[in-house]
Design a protein around this nucleic acid. Sequence first.
DNA 1: CGGCGGATTGATAAGATTCAAATGGCGTGG
DNA 2: CCACGCCATTTGAATCTTATCAATCCGCCG
Lengths: 211, 211
Amino acid sequence: MGERRSVVFQKGQRIFGQGEPAEALFFIRSGCVRLVIEDAQGDRHIVGFLFAGELLYGGLTTHWATAEAVSTCAIASSPMDATFRLLAEDQAACAAVVCASQRMLSELARQMTRLVNWSATDRVVWLLERLAQHSRGQAANELELLMGRKDLADFLGLAPETVSRTLAQLEASGELSKLGPRRYRWAPRGRDGRPAATTEAASEPALAIAS
Amino acid sequence: MGERRSVVFQKGQRIFGQGEPAEALFFIRSGCVRLVIEDAQGDRHIVGFLFAGELLYGGLTTHWATAEAVSTCAIASSPMDATFRLLAEDQAACAAVVCASQRMLSELARQMTRLVNWSATDRVVWLLERLAQHSRGQAANELELLMGRKDLADFLGLAPETVSRTLAQLEASGELSKLGPRRYRWAPRGRDGRPAATTEAASEPALAIAS
DNA sequence: CGGCGGATTGATAAGATTCAAATGGCGTGG
DNA sequence: CCACGCCATTTGAATCTTATCAATCCGCCG
């Protein structure tokens, strides 16, 4: 998909908004983006965080979520009609997209299971595990916490205070240690059961159709 | 999609299992089916309930969930390779499937928001509202609670006792009244905010591609 | 009619939220 | 370069919700 120009978004800026018509697909060159759903009652929920190398969108006709830059990021876009042309021409690509959608669905379902059934500690550990995976390739077991406590809380379905407390607790136990302003070292202590098993097949990006 | 023979499943029977290869798409002629995810730690979560007229599957290559009959139901199936053939031939159908997948994704994301952020009462009311919609056409505001408390609980992310207590509370307030063995009357009392707004555009079946 | 499993009810306790205050980091302006 | 002020984060204490455990009730089926 020929993404041409790349646009830079500053921290906090909106890339697209829930309810707006979807006019393009986006590709994250660098930085971190959050996908936000806001319901009529005003409470915010973050569906996921997306990183460099991942495809970004929230629907093909109308955006069902808002995308905002968590950190400064460079984002390329590819107009939607080109995408539809591609899908119409290339059956293999079309099938690939369908399968990819199913994979996303499956992952989201699993994510829901965790957020609904797990304790605050387990949820936080699960998220750290996930974030640590993204930093693999740089330094093992190191992660960059680009997002604020409120973002973490809205993703995990917890109060910001609870996230803060849980992180403090993990630092106290030595599983987590602060390295720099936003950098941490994550040493997955013998946490059998809950996390660890989480890691299974989650290695692929949320949507890797961008071939 | 030519669904031919229709098979009957008894209450509790498994239609397909998580992790198994997906060999067919299913179409529910009558009854109610639950989509279940079970994770490594053994806790069960119900992703959704599906009813007559809806398409049933959990992935196109491998099932990411288990499907079980909540009540006795008749189910037709259409082999997966036929589906792929159709997708390869008919671009419009393919695009429709892609859009439908996105819609499911969007709905699941919303569902997650509610289950994660809302109180027990709000979750139960939301579910009742949803179930009541399915019974529309028969008698207004009447609903059939085919599933047991444990199923409701596993869908809502609550303990069965909590579901029971919440229902009792709704009966006490007059919003819910028992008509028969599994039949209830649901009178959506002036519940502004939380539910009601929920109903918006959720009228279409989870996957209405079956044309 | 007896028994079995799901559902209800009650009492208790764990967990998370809430409100409020203190702390800290960061950017701004002097 | 330092001081100030703002905002995010942390910490503390009280409260509320929901889970848990245990006992009883009810409906259903043999």
